[in-house]
Design a binder for these strands. Structure first.
Length: 981
RNA sequence: GCAGAGGUACCCGAGUUGGUCAAAGGGGCCGGACUUAAGCUCCGGUGCAUAGUGCUUCGCAGGUUCAAAUCCUGCCCUCUGCACCA
């Protein structure tokens, strides 16, 4: 049973306040008081608590989440786009009857708060609190439907105590490690960085060049999960580029670890290679200049100084120099030799600037015969080249440049049984031989490193560990959590480093093992740790006994977050950490799911115009608009580039809301581009969307004040409603928001306008149409939709209702009324074009249109053709035979014309397909139903006449009147001959 | 160099299981209606031709097909990520 969706006897008061102004009554477009409307509904929603949800196993759940923001002050347009997408989907899924979890929180630990605190000599805590209040107010102003009860900030002890709690559990499980390691250090930020946070050897945050330091650091053993992280990428619904980036980052490569013993020494050089099948082609080894063995090998020899020079050069090089220098491969001999474990050959050892210390073992077995880089190196230093793979079976291995680096057949092995093996078989044979002789083994190498977790910063989660002189490194006991950050800390530019390190009160602790004094760890956690599990906390935000209740998490997280929306910049870091974390907590028994995110949508860039110099190919700050290029003095043009502070081409959401209202901003954002696509900011497009919204307001105003009289158009309107809503539901379900909004905010309006133009005016139909329309508008423009809903007397709130039932419409066959209207539209369209042409042949203005519809035998033929086409009749082979047996075909004089018509209907010509293939279902129904074109045209003659701006329209079947302008011959079923007088 | 995404009319942008595609929608521009007047709203136009179903077009060049924006091959260009990764 369809749910009743209207209260009876409602009078319409839609925006009656607006009509007070005498000016407005003249203006045909209604505008509305956005602030009043938006405030009113935001208040109503909040009071009715419609967005508050709880676990309810009887309903399907939908977890809609946006990457929570770092609170840096006011909300910016990128946020607006992110949340407008999420909110539309959350609201849509609620309408679809889902139990929707849609939370918001703040990722509030991090460096910027420290810097701000220094600037104003305050505390990061107060800076953060203030910023959270600002961004939250902005979010509320946009009307986002969050369950605010679940809100939290990660910088509160209520949250970060669970960071610590889980850290200790990871520690117990052996996932935490403290070790000395060469780390990436940023002088500006005064802290180490994880590998993921170094971009082109620069700090991801401040851009300063990263230097290497050796320090004791805390690691999370993410590499334990490397395989699973890689393999499950195939199963999850991430965009391809994100998957590619993660695969790239994890960088699994399969190969062999091979030990080369150093001649005249006990040392062994382990090398990783993906091509063990080329082992017989090794003619030298290359170590990274930093390799510890280098020093040992050259110490006290004539080679020492050259090596030292190379090592120092590599160590002090800036990034720019390094890139430049690496165009040239450079190396020095170390004066020693290593023994190839399979061939027994002794090959020279080099140090090379191109060998990366941190990848693999920092040593490369060089095969110049089959590796381009090794080949170039060998040629430069006069080292021999030995090809050991052939392109063909039983072929030769030849030295060539560029080298052959594909898989081939082994040859020139100086041991039995290897020659003739190919590709993977060859690799396996070599590995088995190495394993049998204890000189190597098959192995997998990852580019992914363990997660370097510790930061030497204040504003983060304190790592809950203690340093005891007697017991060493000891975990804080679970009962002593949280280890809180002290609030009585002053920040200033003079003090560099971590204030925790000098805070006596914080530092002093008691060792839980021996009871003596201990020193607290002063490193805090990388803030990516905070965001690696926040989505699970949202399932149970206010739990004070544990991070989250497993039952709640398992309900909400089943299959992962259903829709996760955020920026592509987190493709590797956040998304990889969170995936790892979820698997780790799963293995601790805290949750069932292993992959945190189901469908991931990465919103596109938001661009805005900025001055641009074509010649210099660079963009400038907006203050240069109208001026000349600061670089070359040439004329500046405009280009759309990513919105950002550096160019000043930002748009303030607050200003836009004040000017046009939240609904217009949301409509613009959603209509401007699909979520994944980049989008350009345009003031004129924003204004156009505002006009569109005002037109809709106008439609509702007219629609609820109508004199009622039924007509055929009512069925048409309901048919359009059914079609639109079906397509809308599909589009929205697929997160194709642009398409969804196009239907709900554009096509619905133009259908409404056509209905009105055609004289539609029936209150029950209109009510039905408008109330469904109000629902369809709710995800994108919720405030105005709610206003419409109320004015129509709808029950409850659109925000909490499920979509009203329209299945009663779908049982009816609307194709004929749709086709008939389409016929009329097409007729007017072609007549309009023809009229222009006809006018050229006439000296006096055209006043009359004559429409000659096709003769009945043509309609009969069409009927036969359509009927046959429904049975998958093969017109090509059997069509002519069928035609010849028809009664009409008996008239010999007409056979030529009949044949032509039949062919046009069925087989078509080379260039045009037969009508049975091109007619829509509705058109076919018209043909089958013996659609009376003449009477439809005559019935609508005055409408057609006014559309075409002529006086009279007459229609008759060919032969029933004068053949004006000889148009009888072109008449065809559904394509009448049209002439103008 | 490797990987991923792309190149559609003045602009943005849909369309890519081949056919109803001269190609949705929006912006801009143009015309008409309404109006004292519009920056509002409504109707229409916006490749060329034409009293009609014709021609040319979807980065460039070929190919498959009765039929290509859509499929295949090669090339050019743009964006993004990774990069002496062994």
């Amino acid at each position: 049973m369809p749910r009743p969706y209207l209260r009876s006897g409602q009078s319409c008061q839609l925006f009656s306040k607006e009509t007070k102004s005498p000016r407005v009554t003249e203006v045909r477009t209604m505008s509305y008081n956005t602030h009043e409307v938006e405030n009113k509904w935001q208040r109503t929603w909040s009071e009715a608590r419609v967005f508050e949800v709880e676990v309810d196993p009887s309903k399907p759940k939908f977890y809609c989440l946006e990457m929570f923001p770092y609170p840096s002050g006011n909300m910016h347009m990128g946020h607006v786009r992110n949340y407008s997408i999420g909110d539309a989907m959350a609201r849509f899924q609620r309408m679809m009857g889902k139990n929707v979890l849609y939370p918001m929180g703040y990722d509030s630990f991090g460096m910027p708060a420290e810097n701000a605190a220094k600037k104003e000599a305050g505390h990061p805590h107060s800076v953060t609190e203030r910023n959270i209040a600002m961004i939250r107010a902005d979010q509320e102003r946009m009307g986002y439907s969050y369950d605010w009860r679940r809100m939290f900030a990660t910088s509160t002890p209520e949250y970060y105590r669970w960071n610590q709690n889980m850290f200790l559990k990871f520690f117990e499980a052996g996932l935490v490690e403290r070790r000395f390691a060469p780390v990436n250090w940023c002088n500006d930020c005064d802290t180490v960085l994880a590998n993921e946070q170094v971009k082109n050897n620069r700090c991801w945050r401040c851009g300063l060049e990263v230097v290497q330091k050796d320090m004791a650091q805390w690691f999370l053993r993410m590499t334990e999960y490397a395989d699973e992280l890689l393999e499950e990428l195939d199963k999850i619904e991430f965009p391809e580029n994100v998957k590619a980036m993660q695969r790239n980052w994890i960088g699994r490569s399969q190969g062999a670890h091979i030990d080369f013993s150093v001649v005249g020494s006990d040392s062994v050089i382990g090398a990783f290679t993906t091509r063990p099948d080329t082992i017989f082609g090794v003619t030298f080894l290359t170590l990274s200049p930093e390799h510890p063995l280098c020093e040992e090998l050259v110490s006290g020899t004539e080679y020492e100084s050259a090596w030292l020079e190379l090592r120092n050069e590599c160590a002090r090089m800036t990034e720019f120099e390094r890139i430049n220098m690496l165009k040239e491969k450079k190396g020095v001999p170390l004066g020693r030799f290593a023994k190839n474990p399979l061939s027994g050959e002794e090959v020279p050892i080099y140090a090379g600037n191109f060998v990366v210390a941190s990848y693999g073992t920092g040593a490369v077995m060089a095969v110049p015969g089959h590796d381009q880089r090794d080949y170039d190196f060998a040629k430069k230093y006069g080292i021999s080249v030995r090809p050991v793979l052939s392109r063909e079976r039983d072929g030769e291995a030849i030295e060539e440049n560029p080298v052959f680096d594909g898989l081939g057949w082994m040859i020139n092995s100086n041991r039995e049984s290897f020659d003739g093996l190919h590709g993977n078989e060859a690799k396996e044979a070599v590995i088995s031989a190495l394993e049998a002789e204890g000189t190597g083994h098959g192995t997998v190498q990852f580019r992914l490193k363990d997660w370097l977790l510790s930061r030497q910063r204040f504003w983060g989660t304190p790592i809950p560990m203690l340093h005891c002189d007697d017991c060493g490194v000891v975990p804080v006991s679970l009962d002593d959590l949280p280890v809180e950050l002290p609030l009585d800390v002053k920040f200033s530019w003079e003090d560099s480093g971590n204030p925790l390190a000098t805070n006596q009160e914080f530092l002093e602790a008691t060792c839980p093992q021996c009871g003596k004094n201990a020193r607290r760890e002063t490193d805090t956690m990388d803030t990516f740790y905070d965001s690696s599990w926040y989505f699970m906390r949202f399932a149970d935000s206010n739990n004070i006994a544990r991070p989250f209740d497993p039952d709640k998490v398992n309900y909400w997280m089943e299959g992962g977050v259903d829709l996760y929306i955020g920026g592509i910049e987190h493709a590797v870091m956040h998304l990889l950490y969170a995936r790892f974390f979820t698997k780790a907590t799963r293995d601790l028994g805290m949750n069932l799911v292993g992959e945190p995110f189901g469908r991931l949508v990465c919103q596109g860039m938001l661009n805005a115009p900025a001055p641009f110099c074509v010649k210099c190919n660079s963009e400038y700050h907006v203050e240069n608009f109208g001026g000349d290029c600061p670089n070359c003095g040439g004329k500046l043009s405009t280009r759309s580039v990513k919105m950002g502070k550096s160019l000043g081409n930002t748009i303030s959401p607050g200003d836009m809301i004040s000017k046009f209202g939240a609904d217009t901003v949301r409509l613009f954002i959603l209509f401007g581009a699909n979520p994944e696509a980049g989008m350009d900011w345009s003031d004129s497009a924003l204004e156009a969307n505002n006009r569109q919204l005002n037109q809709i307001v106008d439609a509702f105003k007219i629609g609820s004040n109508i004199k009622s009289s039924p007509s055929d158009m009512d069925n048409w309107l309901l048919a359009r409603l059914l079609d639109n809503r079906t397509r809308w539901t599909e589009a929205m379900d697929d997160v194709s928001l642009r398409e969804g909004v196009m239907i709900s905010h554009f096509e619905m309006l133009s259908d409404w306008q056509w209905y009105r133009r055609r004289g539609g005016s029936h209150a029950p139909t209109i009510n039905r149409f408008l109330s469904s329309w109000a629902e369809m508008m709710a995800p994108a423009t919720p405030h105005i939709a709610e206003e419409f809903w109320e004015s129509l007397g709808g029950l409850g709130l659109v925000a909490s209702n499920t979509l009203s039932e329209i299945s009663d419409l779908s049982v009816r066959d609307w194709s004929e009324i749709l086709a008939s209207e389409e016929y009329l539209r097409d007729l007017i369209d072609s007549a309009r074009n023809l009229k222009v042409l006809a006018q050229k042949h006439s000296d006096i203005p055209i006043t009359k249109m004559v429409v000659q519809t096709a003769l009945s035998w043509k309609a009969e033929l069409a009927y036969e053709a359509v009927k046959l086409s429904r049975t998958n009749f093969d017109f090509k082979t059997k069509g002519q035979e069928y035609l010849k047996n028809l009664k009409i075909f008996e008239k010999e004089s007409m056979r030529g014309e009949i044949f032509q018509t039949w062919m046009a209907m069925t087989a078509g010509s080379k260039k045009k397909r037969g009508r049975v293939n091109t007619w829509s279902e509705g058109q076919k129904n018209l043909v089958l139903g013996h659609f009376d074109e003449t009477s439809v045209i005559n019935k609508n003659s005055s409408f057609i006449a006014s559309s075409l701006q002529i006086d009279t329209v007459v229609s008759y079947s060919v032969g029933d009147g004068e053949d004006v302008a000889g148009k009888a011959k072109v008449s065809f079923p559904l394509e009448p001959g049209i002439s103008f007088i």
